[in-house]
């Protein structure tokens, strides 16, 4: 069994019949980086949120299972589920400007999980935080630990959040569009940093993004979502050589290329959209939630 296994997961808005996620299955093993791709609203972020137990209050699980390290998360009571997730998984959030608490110093925001959830001594947690801040190439980590978020740049804050995510040596990290909110110049560094950290620490990484260019650099496997339906699940090399699904092929064709930025911008053909919508409808027809 893989470290993370999502089986036939369906999500819906409370009180509504239409599903946001339509019986999606995927797995991520330790050491594997899986890209989760789709247009906005396809449900890719929802999978990550469901795994980490942070679905919006209006969204509920309509079916399926989430197994983390051999435990069925959805079968656990909420408090226990949170502790399991906190000990074994971590989130690299999308927007570094809003993901740090403005009224708390950086140090405790990195060490709190180690001390409160994993029961480390404070000194040991602080030493660990310093070590991690150095690993994400932050100069003068001791000073940064005492700083408040508003004293640091966006790039610095994202490095801190990455360090914080790796603090407890989780075996799974969910990165939810971790470079979308950053400057293009910083994006590349952060991407390289996440990839490097993932390799050194040997974690499973679920990389949520709408950017196929990023996937090709970072991921070994790729899942493509359309309207909450998984239409493709391939190894990255195979995906770029020739996607199995017509929608993925169109999506790949719609990605701008550096050699011909404007000419390569082909929208997804309507026939392909119609075909994939028919698949969605068929999936809904066979589902009884």
């Amino acid at each position: 069994m893989s470290f993370l296994e999502v089986r036939d997961l369906s999500l819906r808005i409370k009180g509504e019949q239409t599903r946001l996620l339509r019986s999606v299955s995927l797995s991520v093993s330790v050491g594997e980086v899986r890209g989760l791709v789709g247009e906005s609203g396809a449900g890719k972020s929802m999978i990550g949120k469901a795994v980490l137990g942070i679905l919006p209050r209006a969204v509920e699980v309509a079916g399926g299972e989430i197994w983390l390290d051999g435990q069925n998360l959805l079968a656990l009571p909420v408090a226990q589920r949170r502790r399991v997730i906190g000990a074994k998984a971590a989130l690299i959030p999308q927007d570094p400007l809003t993901a740090l608490n403005p009224s708390r110093r950086i140090g405790p925001q990195i060490t709190d999980r180690l001390v409160d959830i994993l029961g480390w001594a404070r000194n040991r947690a602080e030493a660990r935080a310093l070590e991690l801040l150095e690993e994400v190439q932050i100069a003068d980590p001791a000073r940064v630990m005492r700083s408040y978020p508003h004293e640091l740049s966006g790039g610095m804050r994202q490095r801190i959040l990455i360090a914080s995510a790796f603090a407890a040596e989780p075996k799974l990290i969910v990165a939810d569009e971790p470079t979308t909110a950053l400057d293009v110049t910083v994006q590349k560094q952060i991407l390289r940093l996440i990839k490097g950290m993932q390799e050194r620490h040997g974690t499973a990484l679920l990389f949520v993004t709408h950017d196929l260019g990023v996937v090709s650099k970072v991921c070994q496997t790729i899942s493509v979502l359309y309207a909450g339906l998984m239409v493709e699940d391939s190894a990255t090399a195979a995906f770029y050589a020739g996607p199995r699904h017509a929608y993925s092929r169109a999506l790949l064709a719609a990605t701008p290329k550096y050699t011909d930025p404007l000419g390569s911008l082909t929208p997804v053909p309507e026939a392909v959209i119609a075909a994939v919508r028919a698949e969605v409808a068929a999936a809904d027809g066979g589902w009884h939630g």
């Binding site: 980490l52 137990g53 942070i54 919006p56 408090a79 949170r82 502790r83 399991v84 997730i85 906190g86 000990a87 998984a89 971590a90 989130l91 959030p93 999308q94 927007d95 809003t98 993901a99 740090l100 608490n101 403005p102 709190d112 999980r113 409160d116 959830i117 959040l161």
Partner: peptide, 15 residues
């Protein structure tokens, strides 16, 4: 309650 740093704290395992 629905700001990002609050959500992040939930993923850390807190009640």
């Amino acid at each position: 309650m629905h700001l990002d740093y609050v959500t992040l704290s939930r993923t850390k395992g807190y009640s």
